[in-house]
Design a binder for these strands. Sequence first.
DNA 1: CTGTTAGCGCGTTCAA
DNA 2: TTGAACGCGCTAACAG
Lengths: 328, 328
Amino acid sequence: MIQESVKIKDVAQHAGVSSATVSRVLGNKPHVKEDVRDRVLESVKALGYRPSRIAQSLRTQKSKVIGLIVSDIQNSFFTAIVRAVEDVASEQGYGVFLCNTDENPEKEQFYVDLLLDERVAGIVMVPTREQDTPCKEIIHSGTPLVVVDRRVLDVEVDTVLTDNREASSKLVKALIAQGHTSIAAVLPDLRITTGRERHLGMLDALAEANIAMDEDNLYIGPPTAEAGYALTRKLLAKKVLPTALFVGTKYMCLGALKAFHEADIRFPEDITLAAFDKLDMLPYKPNFIYAEQPTYDLGESAVKLLMEKIENPSKTIQFITLSSRLNI
Amino acid sequence: MIQESVKIKDVAQHAGVSSATVSRVLGNKPHVKEDVRDRVLESVKALGYRPSRIAQSLRTQKSKVIGLIVSDIQNSFFTAIVRAVEDVASEQGYGVFLCNTDENPEKEQFYVDLLLDERVAGIVMVPTREQDTPCKEIIHSGTPLVVVDRRVLDVEVDTVLTDNREASSKLVKALIAQGHTSIAAVLPDLRITTGRERHLGMLDALAEANIAMDEDNLYIGPPTAEAGYALTRKLLAKKVLPTALFVGTKYMCLGALKAFHEADIRFPEDITLAAFDKLDMLPYKPNFIYAEQPTYDLGESAVKLLMEKIENPSKTIQFITLSSRLNI
DNA sequence: CTGTTAGCGCGTTCAA
DNA sequence: TTGAACGCGCTAACAG
């Protein structure tokens, strides 16, 4: 039984008023007599009327939907961002249009076009690249935009980041504070901003302590568990092991743990580990030093900033940086 | 520099034709002369024209957006579903409107209303409850609906499920085939359909092998890692341990592993484990028997079914059941 | 306080 | 093959 969609006119007729009055009542506008208002609300309920947000959007030229573009919906890091955006948006009566780019610039472009066609009120986006991003297009269209987690270089845009360099530095400093001087590192390659910054943070800490980084102890590869595993195995094959290991990404760390496990290396007994993320999906609590990333906060800040921009488009560009929390 | 949004009329003027012709060209309708078509396309590109999907929706009374309601966007099970829905939808030019209910019926209701107001083309939904669901409302509105992963009892609706009972039965049968007769079970409580079905599957297998279930070996609680941990500890406190353990959910299994780890119980040496999901986030590959859930397929089937219903609303109700794959 | 009117941007008749 | 005119459902300006 498909019910004929009931429109504002039907409600008006049912309540014996004009559609303008119905609109006023539903929009909580003033200048409506109490009894009329009640009568209208009754009719609304009686007919099961639901205003079409499509028609509203067309008329008012603004929608109550925000676009969210992430690079990997299966990665718990972004999942936390999605969740935060969802929470804040729904609180404000906004819906969320979700797009997953899979780190693929073509899909990213596809979705940007789609969101612009949908005339979303604003966009929160994790860009796939730092250059040639579709950010220009978005800004050019006049749609408010906030970029999260990664920088873009080709255009000035509101951005919310974690301070990877500082977090990385804090981690290595913690190792140094424990007396370690022989520190190895498994890092993501430097094409990715995040990797570069974490590398720099490490160097900051070492420089401050006047410790020279042994190039031999630097292992670099893609930010995957596989690479983390392979690199750590390579490290473990050395005759004399460093006393501490700094691992640059969560997935690499999982790989490193696997290598440790296989080689029956225990930590912190045999080697001290410092890494990102708390790995709380593990059945045991690994005994290591980690920087807890403010993932939810990242999304929350981003979407709140976006909301501000939606309401007040004249705001100037902002750069927000969030710190990680160190757990020892 | 906010660019004034360019509309179909602007394109028409620029190309020296009427807006109707532009519409025809963009809609790939016939009866347009080649040169006119080319001229229009040029103007479209020159002006950077993007048709408003809002206006299109209002005019045609159909949108190219589907709603997706899941109960926990942070759970990898649902994340796989989200991903599948995304993939298929974007392939067909549809956008996805994501809603996270957090297992909260009120949020579920809120989102259902939102999606209906947005006049989405269809909805894929993981319901929070089996009764009093907003499904009735959706169907009543005439919006195509497909329910995933869980049953709803109060209304007939297209549904895509995994066969939990069969998977559970296969797992326990595998244990029996290995010669186990003393089998303990850590199961989610029976309020949840999934839990009930997995319980039944276990009983099926035991009955078929003429093995009586020892009530003492049955541990039941909420489907969380905490509960899995606590229940397994209780189990491990017994004087004589069973030779095998069947765990009913992924998170409970993580808890069980933690308890094992702490008690220094090794598997399969000390006890054989059979559980759901492959736990591939672990740094080591646990040596256990598991049923791999077809999570992606679940989402894929659901959204494909939804697409069919959108195109052909007269289709009859379907019940699709997917099997898990057993890994030993 | 309320109703009438005029579009929002587009697709789709109907005539030409 | 094309264009003029209408209306999708709603809100906002104006008039009463």
